[in-house]
């Protein structure tokens, strides 16, 4: 709040007046507490101190807040970068002097949608595996659910092949949540590599999925760890990734705020000296924004979908 006249007379600033009453109040309360473990006399002293401090404090703020003027000391503070000494190559005024990246990206929500779609897709290979190998669709589901039910750890194959409602529910929750979260994580990382969602998702998502969920599941669910069929598992993962990437790619990219900083010509064509900027790197200390990530817009081609 820059209200009640923080500016005093002339070249001074009004600041709250120093006061010992807050400290006295704190001491009073502490003494009351200390009285509870030592002697009532201490508490009585504390009480007296508390009351006095309350009055004192009150008079600091009412009817008027106490202020003191503090003189502003003339002092020159120069603000300049220590690193502007190197002359930067002169560019056309319109060219962004730093790498501006990425100009277009996907929304985080698209990552979540991708995660959901991928989660659905993943059930297909898993289901096929389950039916082919154990002749029951429920096997895979129960296997996943066993993570939640510790007493299922020693269950037989026959048991796992039957339908169990709680198994179905638990598996739905576990699988749904994991897909959602992997999607979210993926969505948050999308701006780092907005170009080829299908490749990155097909590659990254299985990595994440394996990393997050199943490394933990080794311990969480020994039963799953014992019985897991790795080729099929990886197949389901890839299905997840590809579909996730495909779904993300269906969505239009949105322009990041960086877009406005481009010149009109660049905005119209979207394929100008950004590429050239890539090579002619200026003093790296000048680049304020995400260096290192790929320019989102190297050629005009990414609109019609990479891959």
């Amino acid at each position: 709040m820059h209200d009640d006249a923080t500016h005093g007379q002339g070249n001074s600033v009004l600041l709250p007046r120093p006061t010992a009453w807050p400290m006295a109040l704190a001491l009073g309360l502490s003494l009351i507490f200390a009285g509870m473990v030592t002697n009532v006399a201490v508490a009585a002293l504390g009480l007296a101190m508390t009351l006095a401090a309350c009055v004192g404090w009150f008079r600091q703020v009412l009817p008027h807040e106490a202020h003191v003027p503090v003189a502003v000391i003339a002092e020159e503070v120069e603000i300049a970068s220590a690193r502007t000494l190197i002359q930067r190559p002169q560019r056309s005024a319109s060219a962004a002097p730093r790498k501006v990246l990425p100009v277009e990206t996907f929304l985080i929500g698209n990552g979540i949608r991708g995660g959901i779609a991928g989660g659905l897709a993943m059930t297909v290979p898993a289901g096929i595996f389950s039916v082919l190998k154990y002749h029951s669709f429920w096997y895979a589901i129960n296997l996943l659910a066993a993570g939640g039910f510790v007493d299922w750890a020693s269950a037989s194959n026959a048991f796992l092949c039957q339908f169990h409602l709680q198994g179905l529910l638990a598996a739905l929750v576990i699988h749904g949540l994991t897909s959602l979260l992997v999607g979210l994580l993926y969505g948050a990382m999308l701006p780092m590599f907005p170009r080829y969602p299908i490749v990155t998702a097909g590659f990254m998502a299985p990595l994440l999925m394996t990393g997050i969920m199943f490394s933990a599941l080794n311990i969480l669910s020994p039963i799953l760890n014992q019985r897991i069929d790795w080729p099929w598992f990886i197949l389901s993962q890839i299905a997840f990734g590809l579909v996730c990437g495909y779904v993300v790619n269906l969505h239009a990219k949105v322009r990041t705020p960086q877009f406005q900083a481009l010149s009109f010509a660049e905005r119209a064509g979207l394929h100008s000296n950004l590429v050239e900027l890539d090579g002619s790197q200026a003093d790296p200390s000048q680049t304020g924004v995400q260096r290192g990530t790929q320019p989102g817009t190297k050629n005009g081609d990414k609109e019609d979908g990479a891959l």
């Binding site: 600041l15 006061t19 109040l25």
Partner: peptide
Amino acid sequence: RDMAFPRLNAFSFWISAFGGMLLYF
């Protein structure tokens, strides 16, 4: 230029500090 409640700020510090002293007492 300062916290919203400068005196409360001092009070909070001192009461935490006295708490530590009480513990070691």
